[in-house]
Design a protein around this nucleic acid. Structure first.
Lengths: 238, 238
DNA sequence: ACTTCCTATTTCCTATAGTATCTTTGAATG
DNA sequence: CATTCAAAGATACTATAGGAAATAGGAAGT
């Protein structure tokens, strides 16, 4: 009955069979992706176990999984810590990796455009809607954190859909490694939403390229990521 | 003193501080990559723990890490099993992923050819040496398993060096996910060494392309992987 | 006053024990 | 004879406890 504290907090009555390990994983991931995560701060196994009302064993397994995301780093016999933010050169590497992965994946996804186009149209519409909402909130004064979160989610969803529609488990798996880093970059670099109009325009260009074959899609995606990189560079020196 | 059985078997007197978890990981990985691994067979945590003389906890952690390699699969409350060999469609996905990753990585590695060329030359020389050795052994009758292992290692080392010379931690990390699958494919598809001459020739073409810029290298790598895929397809229907 | 060493506390790491779940085997019934 | 249900065994999962290492604080010596 010691595990009740976790499950009762879950509103869903039907609980998927997937062990405490995954619950701990989700909880810790929420904390790491949420605001107020201090890089370098210790992630005590026992503390997490006590806070979540579970034993250290599933916590250890969850942390091993999290190592892969690059959000936590581990030193043997010393424990886990929140990973340091991406340095400048690591940021360049991240964009290089995105150029390789996303351009290639976009070309593969473009093999059958009819199955992906509706989903992309919907995602872009949502992205545009949130861009307008952010724009209004920005003029009104400040932007609510929840709105910001939704905007970033819509932005990334466009990229995520392209990965999904490759139907390639290996590429999808690699995209997850990228996803967490991009999310983390947005916390640290704080590139903001100043490029919202440009980003949506470039997404539109990618979408339109789907009717012109894989090569056009690949080029459009490459162009988009290169521009995102340039804007991120400008922000970091601001 | 229960851990002595592990460490005493290690001839190296200076042991890096890296926990039992990594030792278990290495041992299980050796078994999985070695011959005689039956897909679907159970990987009992307690059995492994007893065999290696450790407790189940570090074994669990090692298996979580191995999940990522795709060599083991897990069912909640049912345990770990040796992953099934790659199906035909998964093999296609693997080659698609290689096309994306390796072509892109080759282009990045080609940014400064002078630092990678000597290493590639050496790797290709070793590959050629082993190709000749395999050829001789093949005519003599049968090929020793150890020689076969060395040949495959030399073959992959060429690809591995290109990944390493991107100096991109994300791409290198992704290459490891590919590496284990390629190794596994060679066990199951048993494409053999019939294409040794063609493979070395294509590697030579890639190497020569480094003096013609990133685009040439990318094209050469793409051509190589496409040909490898074609040969693998021929083998599977043979 | 600073450095060094020692001690105590905290934390990770490993081992052992109990509980829940799945599989399998056997028997009983239609 | 086939099928279904039940019970027993095995296995994974979680929890608790003990031992080892590292860090932090304080005291003693230079």
């Amino acid at each position: 009955m010691t595990t009740d504290s976790l499950f009762t907090s879950n509103s869903s009555p039907s609980i998927e069979r997937r062990g405490l390990r995954d619950h701990v994983y989700d909880r810790v991931l929420d904390v790491l992706l949420g605001p107020g995560v201090e890089p370098g701060s210790r992630l005590s196994i026992d503390t997490i176990a006590r806070d979540l009302g579970v034993s250290p064993t599933p916590v250890r397994e969850a942390l091993v999984q999290l190592e892969r995301t690059g959000l936590v780093s581990r030193v043997a016999n010393k424990g886990y810590t929140v990973a340091e933010p991406l340095a400048a050169d690591q940021l360049e590497s991240l964009f290089d990796a995105r150029l390789v992965l996303e351009s290639g994946s976009a070309a593969i996804a473009a093999r059958n455009p009819e199955s992906i186009l509706p989903a992309l149209e919907e995602a872009l519409a949502e992205h545009l809607k949130l861009t307008a909402a952010v724009h209004d909130a920005s003029e009104a004064g400040d932007i609510p954190l929840e709105l910001l979160r939704e905007y970033f989610a819509a932005d990334w969803n466009f990229h995520h859909l392209i990965f999904e529609h490759t139907h390639n488990p290996f590429l999808i798996d690699m995209s997850e490694a990228i996803s967490t880093r991009v999310h983390r970059m947005r916390q640290t670099v704080a590139t903001g939403v100043s490029d919202a109009e440009e980003a949506t325009a470039e997404h539109r260009a990618i979408l339109d390229a789907f009717s012109q074959g894989p090569e056009a899609v690949e080029a459009a995606m490459r162009s988009h990521i290169l521009k995102v990189r340039d804007r991120a560079r400008d922000d970091s020196v601001r």
